[in-house]
Design a protein around this nucleic acid. Structure first.
Lengths: 213, 213
DNA sequence: TTTATATTGTGATTTTTTTCACATTTAAAG
DNA sequence: CTTTAAATGTGAAAAAAATCACAATATAAA
């Protein structure tokens, strides 16, 4: 179990180390140093070591970290073995893609149901999952003990479905709608909007240019 | 022009304020306080004010910020009017969706070409854009003065196409491949991997549970 | 067995970011 | 015109995060 409170940013980086480590598992290499792992993840070596130190001593001086052991250790420490009942809200292009993405199940996200507002979609199956009407979100989430909701609806509908998920007792929300969600603090939220990231890139490029000139 | 160096995190939040402001433009409301804007973006009011202060004084005591004026001011200060020649690498499900997403052009991302390794796709058009072979990335990027590259290839190919983009003189990269890219520091990079975000949510939920018990 | 050295783990330091608190401003009311 | 109070903008304080530097350690070579 983790020593003390792990900083949020360290948790996120640990997930990134794990992503690389599971790729390395397929190679013959057995151990990796913080320097190498840092190179592969664009994170400085001391940061890698410090992050890993939050979940305990696992490295070997002069050799580095055993790849399999470190991978397992991150999975265990962060509880990534757990299986989560998951729902997808909004079966448009993105929602459909997610319903057909088999790796989600492999990663422990057990998609139990999907929701959409379009009567033509309701009752149909996508990726083996039945689509329910959006106004049934709260009872369905509660009944099926759904813990994680993935929001793929247009921005105008996002807050409403978010509230419905919250009322049903959801624990975590991954939001793809391009709008910030108002949410009780006990629900863990993550928002992904590639247009914000693109604009961030543009802004940084522009400010770099201005500074030079 | 901005007073001094704007912190990266403030830039990102300014993009998020702008996203909300442009939605508010369609409403009749004329001004907004830092408190209201903070509520809408889940960011504390003092943080909103401090972020805005990096791009100058624009608010009016007792009234707040004029929505249109603040929106324009963020756009100007961060240089978000600029048009960027853009390329999409990897015309799979995601790449295809992006090529058919008209808002990209509206936002100033002028997609000039796409690349794929699959001979069956090369020469075809998707969303009006011709698909070139991946081994032509470097010269095509250079010739067309492409500044931003969006990587949508599988993880095994991502570093190779990233290197090719860098060699062609790319300035910014948005990476959807689930792998960290090694990249010269002068190139602005952003990585989006929803599986990392899902695992982050799981990890935080687990650590919350552990702490309570 | 001893030595040399690569590598970890971590306290201490520095830097960055967030948070606070309040003086200042200004619109609106009286 | 004066008063009131809502809201900004910001310097200062606090908190968090990143960075550094090095003692401790353990492998491999001599």
């Amino acid at each position: 179990m983790p020593k003390k409170n792990i900083p949020k940013l360290a948790i996120r980086r640990l997930c990134i180390y794990k992503r690389m480590l599971s790729r390395l598992l397929e190679k013959e290499q057995e151990t990796i140093s913080s320097k190498e792992l840092g190179k592969l993840t664009s994170i400085p070596d001391y940061q890698v070591r410090k992050d890993i130190s939050f979940i305990g001593e696992i490295g070997v001086a002069r050799k580095g970290y055993n790849i399999k052991k470190l991978n397992d250790h991150i999975i265990n420490s962060l509880g990534l073995i757990e299986v989560w009942n998951t729902a997808i809200v909004g079966v448009g292009q993105l929602g459909t893609a997610l319903l057909n993405y088999p790796r989600l199940k492999e990663m422990g996200y057990n998609i139990l149901c999907a929701f959409d507002i379009d009567p033509k979609k309701i009752g149909k199956k996508t990726g083996g999952i039945t689509i329910f009407p959006s106004d049934r979100i709260t009872p369905t989430v509660r009944k099926n003990q759904i813990k994680i909701g993935i929001i793929c609806v247009p921005p105008g509908a996002a807050q409403t479905v978010c509230d419905a998920l919250a009322k049903g007792g959801i624990r975590g929300i991954l939001n793809f709608a391009p709008i910030a969600l108002n949410i009780p603090a006990h629900i863990v939220k993550r928002e992904i909007d590639f247009t914000v990231e693109l604009e961030f890139i543009s802004a940084v490029l522009n400010l770099m240019k201005k500074k030079r000139s």
